[in-house]
Protein backbone atom coordinates (compact mmCIF):
# COMPACT_ATOMS: atom_id res chain seq x y z
CA UNK A 1 0.00 0.00 0.00
CA UNK A 2 2.48 2.60 -1.10
CA UNK A 3 0.05 4.42 -3.32
CA UNK A 4 0.77 7.86 -1.90
CA UNK A 5 4.38 7.58 -2.98
CA UNK A 6 3.35 7.11 -6.58
CA UNK A 7 0.80 9.90 -6.87
CA UNK A 8 0.84 11.51 -10.24
CA UNK A 9 2.85 8.80 -11.93
CA UNK A 10 1.69 8.38 -15.50
CA UNK A 11 1.82 4.93 -17.00
CA UNK A 12 1.90 4.07 -20.66
CA UNK A 13 -1.25 4.78 -22.65
CA UNK A 14 -1.87 8.32 -21.43
CA UNK A 15 -3.92 7.28 -18.40
CA UNK A 16 -2.91 7.97 -14.83
CA UNK A 17 -1.09 5.26 -12.83
CA UNK A 18 -3.58 2.43 -12.30
CA UNK A 19 -6.11 4.22 -14.54
CA UNK A 20 -7.99 6.27 -11.91
CA UNK A 21 -7.09 9.92 -11.38
CA UNK A 22 -5.56 10.83 -8.03
CA UNK A 23 -8.65 12.76 -6.92
CA UNK A 24 -10.77 9.67 -7.36
CA UNK A 25 -8.20 7.48 -5.60
CA UNK A 26 -8.24 9.82 -2.61
CA UNK A 27 -12.01 9.64 -2.48
CA UNK A 28 -11.85 5.82 -2.53
CA UNK A 29 -9.09 5.73 0.08
CA UNK A 30 -11.21 7.90 2.36
CA UNK A 31 -14.03 5.38 2.00
CA UNK A 32 -11.58 2.53 2.69
CA UNK A 33 -10.31 4.24 5.85
CA UNK A 34 -13.85 4.73 7.06
CA UNK A 35 -14.62 1.09 6.29
CA UNK A 36 -11.57 -0.04 8.26
CA UNK A 37 -12.66 2.13 11.17
CA UNK A 38 -16.11 0.50 11.24
CA UNK A 39 -15.48 -3.18 10.42
CA UNK A 40 -18.30 -4.75 8.44
CA UNK A 41 -20.14 -1.48 7.78
CA UNK A 42 -20.91 -0.74 4.14
CA UNK A 43 -19.55 2.69 3.23
CA UNK A 44 -21.20 4.34 0.21
CA UNK A 45 -18.65 5.66 -2.26
CA UNK A 46 -18.84 7.47 -5.59
CA UNK A 47 -18.06 4.44 -7.71
CA UNK A 48 -16.80 5.38 -11.17
CA UNK A 49 -17.75 3.98 -14.50
CA UNK A 50 -14.88 1.71 -15.35
CA UNK A 51 -13.78 0.46 -18.75
CA UNK A 52 -15.15 -2.97 -17.85
CA UNK A 53 -18.74 -3.96 -17.18
CA UNK A 54 -20.46 -3.56 -13.84
CA UNK A 55 -20.62 -6.94 -12.16
CA UNK A 56 -17.26 -7.95 -13.58
CA UNK A 57 -15.13 -6.69 -10.73
CA UNK A 58 -15.35 -2.91 -11.03
CA UNK A 59 -15.55 -2.53 -7.24
CA UNK A 60 -12.48 -4.68 -6.62
CA UNK A 61 -10.63 -2.97 -9.46
CA UNK A 62 -11.31 0.48 -8.01
CA UNK A 63 -10.18 -0.59 -4.54
CA UNK A 64 -7.01 -2.17 -5.96
CA UNK A 65 -6.33 0.88 -8.11
CA UNK A 66 -6.70 3.15 -5.09
CA UNK A 67 -4.21 1.25 -2.92
CA UNK A 68 -1.77 0.04 -5.57
CA UNK A 69 1.79 1.42 -5.46
CA UNK A 70 4.68 1.01 -7.87
CA UNK A 71 6.45 -1.45 -5.57
CA UNK A 72 3.43 -3.71 -5.10
CA UNK A 73 3.23 -7.21 -6.50
CA UNK A 74 -0.27 -8.04 -7.67
CA UNK A 75 -2.02 -11.40 -7.91
CA UNK A 76 -5.47 -11.71 -9.45
CA UNK A 77 -7.61 -14.82 -9.05
CA UNK A 78 -11.11 -15.80 -10.08
CA UNK A 79 -12.58 -19.04 -8.71
CA UNK A 80 -9.22 -19.59 -7.03
CA UNK A 81 -7.31 -19.69 -10.31
CA UNK A 82 -4.93 -17.17 -11.86
CA UNK A 83 -5.72 -18.19 -15.41
CA UNK A 84 -9.49 -17.86 -15.55
CA UNK A 85 -10.47 -15.41 -18.28
CA UNK A 86 -11.64 -12.54 -16.09
CA UNK A 87 -8.63 -12.86 -13.78
CA UNK A 88 -6.40 -12.68 -16.83
CA UNK A 89 -8.29 -9.67 -18.11
CA UNK A 90 -8.04 -7.74 -14.83
CA UNK A 91 -4.37 -8.63 -14.38
CA UNK A 92 -3.66 -7.36 -17.89
CA UNK A 93 -5.55 -4.17 -17.11
CA UNK A 94 -3.23 -3.40 -14.21
CA UNK A 95 -0.13 -4.50 -16.10
CA UNK A 96 -1.06 -2.06 -18.84
CA UNK A 97 -2.15 0.88 -16.67
CA UNK A 98 0.31 0.62 -13.77
CA UNK A 99 3.21 -1.49 -14.94
CA UNK A 100 3.43 -3.19 -11.53
CA UNK A 101 4.90 -6.62 -11.20
CA UNK A 102 2.35 -9.42 -11.15
CA UNK A 103 2.64 -12.90 -9.73
CA UNK A 104 0.65 -16.09 -9.41
CA UNK A 105 2.33 -17.06 -6.15
CA UNK A 106 0.21 -16.22 -3.15
CA UNK A 107 3.21 -15.83 -0.84
CA UNK A 108 4.89 -13.30 -3.14
CA UNK A 109 1.87 -11.04 -3.64
CA UNK A 110 1.37 -7.84 -1.64
CA UNK A 111 -2.15 -7.32 -3.04
CA UNK A 112 -4.42 -10.17 -4.07
CA UNK A 113 -7.62 -9.33 -5.90
CA UNK A 114 -10.10 -12.18 -5.78
CA UNK A 115 -13.49 -13.26 -6.93
CA UNK A 116 -15.23 -16.10 -5.04
CA UNK A 117 -12.25 -17.60 -3.17
CA UNK A 118 -9.77 -16.96 -0.38
CA UNK A 119 -6.36 -18.51 -1.11
CA UNK A 120 -5.55 -21.72 0.79
CA UNK A 121 -2.20 -20.41 2.02
CA UNK A 122 -2.50 -18.42 5.25
CA UNK A 123 -2.23 -14.72 4.48
CA UNK A 124 0.21 -12.47 6.30
CA UNK A 125 0.25 -8.97 7.78
CA UNK A 126 2.08 -7.68 4.66
CA UNK A 127 -0.79 -8.60 2.36
CA UNK A 128 -4.12 -7.08 1.37
CA UNK A 129 -6.95 -9.23 0.04
CA UNK A 130 -9.36 -7.33 -2.22
CA UNK A 131 -12.72 -8.99 -2.85
CA UNK A 132 -14.96 -8.30 -5.84
CA UNK A 133 -18.50 -8.06 -4.50
CA UNK A 134 -21.69 -8.28 -6.59
CA UNK A 135 -24.32 -7.67 -3.88
CA UNK A 136 -22.85 -6.26 -0.67
CA UNK A 137 -26.09 -6.35 1.29
CA UNK A 138 -26.55 -9.59 3.28
CA UNK A 139 -30.18 -8.67 3.93
CA UNK A 140 -30.98 -7.94 0.28
CA UNK A 141 -32.79 -11.17 -0.49
CA UNK A 142 -34.85 -10.91 2.67
CA UNK A 143 -35.59 -7.19 2.32
CA UNK A 144 -35.05 -5.68 -1.16
CA UNK A 145 -35.26 -2.05 -0.05
CA UNK A 146 -31.98 -0.27 0.57
CA UNK A 147 -33.77 2.36 2.65
CA UNK A 148 -35.00 -0.38 5.02
CA UNK A 149 -31.83 -2.49 5.15
CA UNK A 150 -29.78 0.54 6.14
CA UNK A 151 -32.10 1.13 9.07
CA UNK A 152 -31.91 -2.55 10.01
CA UNK A 153 -28.11 -2.36 10.14
CA UNK A 154 -28.19 0.89 12.08
CA UNK A 155 -30.51 -0.62 14.68
CA UNK A 156 -28.89 -4.06 14.68
CA UNK A 157 -32.30 -5.38 13.72
CA UNK A 158 -31.11 -8.77 12.48
CA UNK A 159 -33.90 -11.15 13.56
CA UNK A 160 -34.82 -11.68 9.92
CA UNK A 161 -31.40 -13.16 9.18
CA UNK A 162 -31.99 -15.98 11.62
CA UNK A 163 -35.50 -16.47 10.29
CA UNK A 164 -33.86 -17.53 7.04
CA UNK A 165 -31.55 -19.98 8.80
CA UNK A 166 -34.50 -21.28 10.85
CA UNK A 167 -36.42 -21.95 7.64
CA UNK A 168 -33.47 -23.86 6.20
CA UNK A 169 -33.33 -26.16 9.19
CA UNK A 170 -37.11 -26.59 9.33
CA UNK A 171 -37.16 -27.52 5.65
CA UNK A 172 -33.91 -29.42 5.15
CA UNK A 173 -32.76 -30.40 8.61
CA UNK A 174 -29.67 -28.20 8.28
CA UNK A 175 -28.64 -24.74 7.14
CA UNK A 176 -28.78 -24.81 3.35
CA UNK A 177 -26.58 -21.83 2.55
CA UNK A 178 -23.36 -22.89 0.87
CA UNK A 179 -21.83 -19.65 -0.35
CA UNK A 180 -22.15 -15.96 0.53
CA UNK A 181 -22.78 -17.34 4.00
CA UNK A 182 -23.49 -14.34 6.27
CA UNK A 183 -21.13 -13.46 9.10
CA UNK A 184 -21.23 -11.16 12.10
CA UNK A 185 -18.27 -8.84 12.45
CA UNK A 186 -16.97 -7.90 15.91
CA UNK A 187 -20.39 -8.71 17.37
CA UNK A 188 -21.93 -5.78 15.50
CA UNK A 189 -22.52 -5.74 11.75
CA UNK A 190 -23.89 -8.63 9.74
CA UNK A 191 -21.79 -8.81 6.57
CA UNK A 192 -21.87 -10.62 3.25
CA UNK A 193 -18.49 -12.26 2.65
CA UNK A 194 -19.13 -11.99 -1.14
CA UNK A 195 -19.98 -15.24 -2.93
CA UNK A 196 -17.07 -17.18 -1.49
CA UNK A 197 -17.96 -20.75 -0.49
CA UNK A 198 -18.66 -21.15 3.21
CA UNK A 199 -15.57 -23.36 3.21
CA UNK A 200 -13.59 -20.10 3.22
CA UNK A 201 -15.51 -18.38 6.03
CA UNK A 202 -13.20 -19.50 8.85
CA UNK A 203 -10.23 -17.96 7.01
CA UNK A 204 -11.76 -14.49 7.39
CA UNK A 205 -11.69 -14.69 11.17
CA UNK A 206 -8.59 -13.30 12.91
CA UNK A 207 -6.88 -13.00 9.52
CA UNK A 208 -3.50 -11.25 9.66
CA UNK A 209 -4.05 -9.55 6.29
CA UNK A 210 -6.27 -6.54 5.67
CA UNK A 211 -9.42 -7.59 3.80
CA UNK A 212 -11.17 -5.01 1.60
CA UNK A 213 -14.45 -5.50 -0.21
CA UNK A 214 -15.48 -3.43 -3.23
CA UNK A 215 -18.92 -3.39 -4.87
CA UNK A 216 -18.79 -1.08 -7.91
CA UNK A 217 -22.34 -1.25 -9.22
CA UNK A 218 -23.84 -1.02 -5.74
CA UNK A 219 -21.30 1.68 -4.78
CA UNK A 220 -20.22 0.23 -1.44
CA UNK A 221 -16.88 -0.52 0.22
CA UNK A 222 -16.44 -2.48 3.44
CA UNK A 223 -13.49 -3.90 5.28
CA UNK A 224 -12.11 -6.29 7.85
CA UNK A 225 -9.00 -4.89 9.53
CA UNK A 226 -6.33 -7.47 10.49
CA UNK A 227 -7.33 -9.84 13.29
CA UNK A 228 -11.01 -8.95 13.22
CA UNK A 229 -13.48 -11.31 14.84
CA UNK A 230 -15.68 -12.82 12.12
CA UNK A 231 -18.33 -15.33 13.15
CA UNK A 232 -20.57 -17.25 10.76
CA UNK A 233 -24.21 -17.02 11.81
CA UNK A 234 -25.70 -20.21 13.20
CA UNK A 235 -27.71 -21.72 16.04
CA UNK A 236 -26.24 -23.18 19.24
CA UNK A 237 -27.67 -26.59 18.38
CA UNK A 238 -26.97 -26.29 14.63
CA UNK A 239 -23.47 -24.85 14.56
CA UNK A 240 -21.83 -23.55 11.39
CA UNK A 241 -20.03 -26.29 9.48
CA UNK A 242 -17.63 -25.58 6.65
CA UNK A 243 -18.05 -27.74 3.55
CA UNK A 244 -16.08 -30.98 3.69
CA UNK A 245 -15.08 -33.03 0.69
CA UNK A 246 -15.06 -36.80 0.50
CA UNK A 247 -12.13 -36.68 -1.89
CA UNK A 248 -8.50 -35.67 -1.88
CA UNK A 249 -7.19 -33.54 -4.74
CA UNK A 250 -6.53 -35.90 -7.65
CA UNK A 251 -3.39 -33.99 -8.57
CA UNK A 252 -1.65 -33.03 -5.33
CA UNK A 253 -3.40 -35.28 -2.82
CA UNK A 254 -4.42 -32.38 -0.55
CA UNK A 255 -7.28 -33.29 1.80
CA UNK A 256 -8.20 -29.93 3.30
CA UNK A 257 -8.62 -27.70 0.26
CA UNK A 258 -11.65 -26.55 -1.72
CA UNK A 259 -12.08 -28.75 -4.78
CA UNK A 260 -13.42 -28.21 -8.27
CA UNK A 261 -15.27 -31.07 -9.85
CA UNK A 262 -13.95 -31.62 -13.36
CA UNK A 263 -15.98 -33.68 -15.81
CA UNK A 264 -13.49 -35.74 -17.80
CA UNK A 265 -15.74 -37.57 -20.25
CA UNK A 266 -19.39 -38.03 -21.16
CA UNK A 267 -19.67 -41.35 -19.31
CA UNK A 268 -19.81 -40.03 -15.76
CA UNK A 269 -16.06 -39.73 -15.39
CA UNK A 270 -14.98 -36.94 -13.09
CA UNK A 271 -12.12 -35.89 -10.90
CA UNK A 272 -11.72 -33.46 -8.04
CA UNK A 273 -8.85 -30.99 -8.10
CA UNK A 274 -7.82 -28.00 -5.99
CA UNK A 275 -9.62 -24.82 -6.92
CA UNK A 276 -6.55 -22.82 -5.78
CA UNK A 277 -4.26 -23.58 -8.72
CA UNK A 278 -1.19 -21.93 -7.21
CA UNK A 279 -1.53 -23.94 -4.01
CA UNK A 280 -1.92 -27.17 -5.98
CA UNK A 281 1.10 -26.48 -8.18
CA UNK A 282 3.28 -25.65 -5.19
CA UNK A 283 2.32 -28.87 -3.46
CA UNK A 284 3.17 -30.86 -6.55
CA UNK A 285 6.48 -29.03 -6.81
CA UNK A 286 7.14 -30.10 -3.24
CA UNK A 287 6.61 -33.71 -4.28
CA UNK A 288 2.99 -34.32 -3.20
CA UNK A 289 1.26 -36.61 -5.63
CA UNK A 290 -2.47 -37.17 -6.11
CA UNK A 291 -4.05 -40.42 -7.27
CA UNK A 292 -4.53 -39.32 -10.90
CA UNK A 293 -1.47 -37.12 -11.32
CA UNK A 294 0.09 -39.17 -14.11
CA UNK A 295 -3.19 -39.67 -15.96
CA UNK A 296 -4.71 -36.21 -15.88
CA UNK A 297 -4.79 -34.34 -19.19
CA UNK A 298 -2.11 -31.69 -19.42
CA UNK A 299 -4.77 -29.01 -19.66
CA UNK A 300 -5.99 -29.89 -16.17
CA UNK A 301 -2.66 -30.67 -14.58
CA UNK A 302 -1.34 -27.32 -15.76
CA UNK A 303 2.12 -25.85 -15.79
CA UNK A 304 3.59 -27.88 -12.96
CA UNK A 305 3.46 -31.03 -15.05
Amino acid sequence: MSALATSGTVAAGGYNFAYLDEQTKRMIRRAILKAIAIPGYQVPFASREMPMPYGWGTGGVQVTAAILGASDRLKVIDQGADDTTNAVSIRKFFEKTSGVETTTHTAEATIIQTRHRIPEKTLTADQVLVYQVPIPEPLRFLEPRETETRVMHALEDYGLMHVKLYEDIATHGHIATTYAYPVKVEDRYVMDPSPTPKFDNPKMNDCAALQLFGAGREKRIYALPPHTKVVSLDFDDHPFEPTKFDHACALCGATHTYLDEVITDDAGGRMFVCSDTDHCEERRAEGHRGALLGEAPAAIAGAAE
Partner: peptide, 21 residues
Protein backbone atom coordinates in the same frame (compact mmCIF):
# COMPACT_ATOMS: atom_id res chain seq x y z
CA UNK B 1 -43.38 -16.53 2.71
CA UNK B 2 -42.01 -18.37 5.73
CA UNK B 3 -43.36 -21.15 7.94
CA UNK B 4 -45.65 -20.67 10.94
CA UNK B 5 -42.77 -21.72 13.20
CA UNK B 6 -40.52 -18.99 11.78
CA UNK B 7 -43.36 -16.47 12.12
CA UNK B 8 -43.68 -17.21 15.81
CA UNK B 9 -39.94 -17.61 16.32
CA UNK B 10 -38.93 -14.34 14.66
CA UNK B 11 -39.39 -12.19 17.75
CA UNK B 12 -37.46 -14.67 19.86
CA UNK B 13 -34.57 -14.61 17.40
CA UNK B 14 -34.75 -10.82 17.27
CA UNK B 15 -34.19 -10.67 21.01
CA UNK B 16 -31.27 -13.06 20.86
CA UNK B 17 -32.56 -16.64 21.07
CA UNK B 18 -29.98 -18.79 19.30
CA UNK B 19 -31.09 -22.36 20.05
CA UNK B 20 -33.14 -23.81 17.23
CA UNK B 21 -34.65 -26.57 19.36
Amino acid sequence: GVSAGANVGERLMAVGWRHYG
